[in-house]
Structure formats: structure tokens, C-alpha cells
Design a protein around this nucleic acid. Structure first.
Length: 598
RNA sequence: GCCCUGGUAGUGUAGCGGCCUAUCAUGAAGCCCUGUCGAGGCUUCGACUCGGAUUCAAAUUCCGGCCAGGGCGCCA
């Protein structure tokens, strides 16, 4: 008999029906006579019961009993039975199907499972196996409701996004996976060409050039759920292959793109959560983000702003500050308000923050407490009453507050102070998991200068439209990042649509005319054939899902992720290939039997 | 390339120089049990990541490797 219902849909309305359920044996409880089995699938769990005392005429109890001997955990089974009310008082209110049960009249094992390497049922306060084990047996792990939820969530998100974009004139277009390797950027994943020995394709780091050429091609509005590849070391929020919701629009400005994303997310929000997303999102200039939050992706779910104190304490005869300032460094402060439990952070905890500060690369951490209208600490003696008053005003100090001061070279100290702020926010429980705050990071620089080599690099990428003369000092880029709860979820920009401007930016980035022609000639040429003003954005879907689902890593939102070393625990890739295949591709490797030749 | 954390039965853990023939839970196997739902009871099974060193004695200390994760660099 074929399945008539899933394991998540039977209810009072089905009483008396003969049904066939097929699924996995999650838990079973054999009482010697009566026996219960929780039969589960993606849709839910239904209790089926073997009730030998109450079987209808003609049912072979022995056969059922025999089949059920094979109902080991996670075995796939098929049962036929009658939907009936549960004995009063034994309903399970936690389970949507908990008002009814299926009395088995026939049972069959479809495929017996070996003892599973992990608990699949999620009623219990689960002790999950290590990620290692979970990934090796991902097909078992995927049965857990948490994984089912994550994948359903992701699917629904993308499906709503697609719905919105299609309603708004966007055209979904696929772009090639086999393309050419472009300089700069991340390391490419590379694919050898059999027909052109010695030549290689590169898998796309993003469809950037193709989507721009789609605009030149008059497609007007494009989107794609695009798989992208970057051969760089993994982190909890990135892995070799990832998914972007990629968009591009013609005849728009930055605000149009931002409005489109806000509209898109509002639509998705409504569909996912049934609530209105607050728009427009906050726009925060790049400089303000760095100044107040010490990062270009601020988490604005809580305060604890950083305060620059360099000028305030400039005259204080405190050796550490003097040295730092004389070397052009900065002093940053955080006020942990007494109302945020600053007054409950004890000396031991302060010491731990000092240790943490050192781990972040700071020389140390200066701290003070506000009491009786002034500041207390072992170093206040170096500060005149005037400086203390200025400090208290700059940091908005009240009794009970705890101040942390950090000093050092600017970039490093700002970043470390930002990390410290996040650490405090986390320790004090200031950011609530279900609170989400979007913001647009705007007014970004066009270029960043490598502090060591002095070379200019693109802050976003070389296709961003400069806001002025690209040679101008500190010229801005017409670009913006979408930030959610301290995560960069996307970055967008207006693009250069003038061929000469594009060449000029390449030159500033240190490319010769020959290099430009060689690497980007096709692209610059395209801009010369009627490229409309255009711009777009790409949203990092894996990260987006991880943040919304409250997951620590993007791997929780990907069915088959790579591990930290970019290997696939399921199929064992990457793997060597036979010599004859290498020969066909005319490839020789420098690795022989694990010996690497440099 | 570098730094940090961890590696004990199938799974999750305790132990952190001799009380270790290694704890507990879960699981698996078997038995008992007619209303459970993480059922319950009884019995049994099953483990110190690898190599070296220190020591009378190492799961425990040290060194190195391997494996996993987090981070720095890297990620236009």
C-alpha cells in the first residue's frame, strides 16, 4: 500500500479512516502487550500503536508483532492502520498530531537502519555530537527538526525573494560557471580545459562582470541565486562555495537599489514572520561606524558607543597615553554604565577584560570607576581635576559607571575597541537573539591604502563609481553595505559605466595598459557600446540565514557544507584523479605520494 | 603560514601522576512489563587520537604528529 498521509497531518478530522504511513522509527515504547512507535518524517511525528487486545476481526497480530521486531531506531517502515482517538488523558498537546493515534493493522519494515550515530529525536535537551560526526552522517543529521527547519526557512526566504523580484520586473538569468580568472580579489577555483591544454577556466567569485554586461545588454533588471566560489581559508561565516542573491538594475541611483532591497526584505519579512519590517533602515556613514563602533559592520542592537578621548587626555602626564599620543596613536574609551551592570563588574572580571584586551593586541586596558561624582582608579592621580571633568563629560559619566580606556596605534586600537565593545555587549547580554537591526553603511571610501606597501586597493571592488575625481584625496565610492546585527550581509554600489573612467580606476590600482587590455579588455570594451548607468547589490544568503536562525555558523544553513579545511566529509572531496585523466588534461602535479616539491 | 581550544565506549561526558580491571548518561543486545510519548525495571556489551620522552608508576606531565573547531593573515 502507498502512503496516504505524511506523519504530520492526521488529526481529529481523520478519525476512523484507514491510513498508510511511511517514515522513520524515532522512538518506540514496548509495554509487553501494547506498543507505541513514534513514526516521523519531515512533516512531523505520529504515534502508531500496536494494540493486540483491540484488533479488528481478521487482523494477524502475530504478523504485526513479527514485523515490529524489526522496528529498530531510524528504520524506515510502513504501517497501515485506523486513525482513532487517544485514550482520554493521554493526548500529547506538544504534538500537532497528538490528539489521535493510528492503530496498526499491518506493518512492514521497508529498510532496517543500523544503530544511528546520533540522537535524531529533538524532544530531549539534546547533546549533539561533534560537528565532525554530524557532517559525516549528514543524512541522519538532516532528519533532526532543527535542520529541517533551517532548510525550509532558507527555501522559503529565497522563494519569497524570488516572488518579490519577479513582481518587480527583475529577470532571473543564469551566468556561466566557467569563466576567466581575473586578477586581484580572492584566489580562484580553477578548472582545466581539455580542449585547450594548459589553459584554465575559473569558477566565479561572483557574477559581477556578467551582470554588468547584462545591463549593457539592456536586460534592465537582473537577479540570480548565484553560487560563488573563493579559494580562501574558511571561517564560521564563510566557506569555499556560497550563495548570493545577486541583483543589478539600470537607470537607478544608490537609493533606488537600497529601496529595492528594503522592499524585498519587507516582503520577505511579512511572509516569514507576519510582521512589518521597519524601513527605511538607518544610514550610517563609514566614518561614524568606525568612530563609534570600531568596525564597518556595527551591531546597533545595543549602545556602549566608543568615545575618542585622545584630545581630552592629551595633557595628562600619564606615561602610557603620552607615549601613544606622541606616536600618533589614539585613546578610545567605553563607558559601561552602572545601569548596564557596570557597577557589578568586579575586580576579577576587570582583570579578565584586561587579559582579553591583550589578546586583542592592545598593550593593556586602563579602567576607572565613577563614584561620588569623580573617578577612582590607580591612575587618576595622573589626571588633573580639569581633565577628569572633561573626561566625565566626554563619556557622559554618572556614579556607578565603569570606564575602559584603550590606547595604541589608530587602526589597531579602533578595531580592538570595537571587539571589546562586542565582548561587553555579549557578556552583559545586551543583544537579544530575536532583535534584528538593519543598517546601511554609506559614504565608504573608494580606495584603501595598504599601510605597508602604500599601494591603493579598491575598498569594495574596482567597478564602483567614484563620487568624484578618482585621483582626489580620500575620494568616496558610490557604494554601501547592508549590515545586520554586526554582520555584513551584502554590499552594493553604483558601477562605473564609462569606459575611460573604468580604465582610469584600473590605472590607479596599479595596472598597466597592457594588463587592463589583457585582463579586462572585453569588459572595458563592453562599456564603450552603450552601457547604461547601473548598479546593484549581492546579499550573502548563507550568512543571512545564519543570523536570522541564530546559528553560530553558516554550515547550519547549508545541507552539505565543507569542513574547515575545505573538504567534503560526505564524498571525500577533494581527491586525486587517475593519471590517465591528468594526462588527458595535460596536467602534471608537483605532489607525489604526499611529498610536495617546492 | 601563525595563534588559541579540544580529542576518553556508537554518542555525550567524569576522571587530570598510584585510589582506573576508567565515572555517569544515552545507545546496542537480551529478558520483564497492556496507555506510553526522552516510557519504566533487570542483565550484558562497549572507550583513554597516534608516536616519542619523563617517571618505580602516565588517560593524567612534557615534546612532536594527526584530527576537529575558533581566530589572525587572507577574503578586489
Amino acid at each position: 500500500m502507498k502512503r496516504t498521509h505524511t506523519c504530520g497531518e492526521l488529526g481529529k478530522g481523520d478519525l476512523g479512516k484507514e491510513v498508510c504511513l511511511q517514515g522513520w522509527v524515532r522512538f518506540s515504547r514496548d509495554h509487553g502487550g501494547v506498543a507505541f512507535v513514534d513514526l516521523a518524517d519531515r512533516y512531523g511525528t505520529t504515534q502508531v500503536v500496536f494494540d493486540p487486545e483491540n484488533l479488528p476481526e481478521g487482523v494477524d497480530a502475530k504478523a504485526i508483532d513479527g514485523a515490529m521486531k524489526g522496528f529498530s531506531r531510524e528504520s524506515v517502515v510502513s504501517v497501515v492502520g485506523i486513525v482513532r482517538d487517544r485514550v482520554p488523558g493521554t493526548e500529547d498537546p506538544r504534538n500537532p498530531t497528538g490528539e489521535v493515534e493510528v492503530m496498526i493493522t499491518s506493518a512492514e519494515v521497508l529498510n532496517r537502519s543500523a544503530a544511528p550515530p546520533m540522537e535524531v529525536g529533538d524532544q530531549k535537551e539534546g547533546v549533539l555530537p561533534s560537528e565532525d560526526v554530524r557532517l559525516r552522517y549528514r543524512y541522519v543529521d538532516l532528519r533532526r527538526s532543527e535542520m529541517v527547519h533551517a532548510l525550509e526557512f532558507r527555501c522559503k526566504f529565497l522563494s519569497l525573494a524570488r516572488e518579490y523580484l519577479l513582481k518587480n520586473k527583475f529577470l532571473e538569468i543564469e551566468t556561466p560557471m566557467l569563466g576567466r580568472s581575473t586578477p586581484e580579489g580572492a584566489r580562484d577555483y580553477v578548472v582545466p580545459s581539455r580542449l585547450h591544454p594548459g589553459k584554465f577556466y575559473a569558477l566565479p567569485q561572483s557574477p559581477q562582470l556578467f551582470k554588468q554586461m547584462l545591463m549593457v545588454g539592456g536586460m534592465d533588471r537582473y537577479f540570480q541565486v548565484a553560487r560563488c566560489f573563493r579559494d580562501e581559508d574558511s571561517r564560521s561565516d564563510r566557506q569555499p562555495e556560497f550563495t548570493q542573491l545577486d541583483m543589478e538594475m539600470s537607470f537607478v541611483d544608490s537609493k533606488d537599489i537600497q529601496d529595492t532591497v528594503e522592499g524585498l526584505l519587507s516582503y520577505v519579512w511579512k511572509g516569514m514572520y507576519g510582521t512589518e519590517l521597519e524601513t527605511p533602515f538607518l544610514r550610517m556613514p563609514f566614518e561614524e561606524a568606525l568612530e563609534k563602533y570600531g568596525t564597518d559592520k556595527p551591531d546597533i542592537r545595543f549602545g556602549l558607543p566608543l568615545v575618542t578621548l585622545t584630545d581630552v587626555v592629551r595633557e595628562a602626564p600619564y606615561g602610557i597615553f603620552q607615549t601613544v599620543i606622541s606616536r600618533g596613536g589614539v585613546i578610545k574609551g567605553i563607558n559601561v554604565k552602572g545601569s548596564l551592570a557596570g557597577d557589578r563588574i568586579g575586580r576579577n572580571e576587570v582583570d579578565r577584560y584586561i587579559e582579553h584586551a591583550k589578546k586583542l593586541g592592545l598593550g593593556g586596558l586602563t579602567w576607572m570607576r565613577a563614584k561620588d561624582g569623580t573617578l577612582e582608579s590607580n591612575i587618576v592621580k595622573y589626571f588633573t581635576p580639569g581633565i577628569i571633568a572633561d573626561l566625565m563629560e566626554a563619556m557622559d559619566v554618572e556614579d556607578g559607571d565603569l570606564l575602559f580606556l584603550m590606547a595604541g596605534p589608530e587602526a589597531q586600537t579602533v578595531a580592538a575597541a570595537g571587539q571589546m565593545r562586542l565582548k561587553l555587549g555579549q557578556d552583559l547580554g545586551l543583544a537579544k537573539a530575536d532583535d534584528h537591526r538593519f543598517l546601511w553603511l554609506v559614504d565608504c571610501p573608494m580606495f584603501e591604502v595598504d599601510p605597508v606597501t602604500g599601494a591603493k586597493g579598491a575598498y569594495h571592488h574596482p567597478f564602483v563609481l567614484p563620487t568624484g575625481d578618482p585621483h582626489g584625496d580620500g575620494v568616496g565610492g558610490e557604494c554601501f553595505d547592508l549590515v545586520l546585527d554586526g554582520n555584513e550581509l551584502g554590499s552594493g554600489s553604483m558601477r562605473i559605466h564609462n569606459a575611460e573612467t573604468q580604465r582610469e580606476v584600473f590605472r590607479i590600482l596599479g595596472m598597466s595598459e597592457e594588463e587592463i587590455d589583457e585582463k579586462f579588455g572585453f569588459f572595458v570594451e563592453a562599456l564603450g557600446y552603450g552601457a547604461p548607468p547601473h548598479g546593484g547589490i549581492a546579499l550573502g544568503i548563507d550568512r543571512f540565514m545564519a543570523v536570522l536562525l541564530g546559528k553560530e555558523t553558516i554550515r547550519e544553513t547549508i545541507a552539505f557544507p565543507k569542513n574547515k579545511r575545505a573538504q567534503s566529509p560526505f564524498d571525500g572531496s577533494p581527491e586525486t584523479i587517475p593519471d590517465d585523466k591528468l594526462e588527458e588534461l595535460q596536467i602534471m602535479t608537483l605532489v607525489i605520494d604526499d611529498l610536495e616539491f617546492e
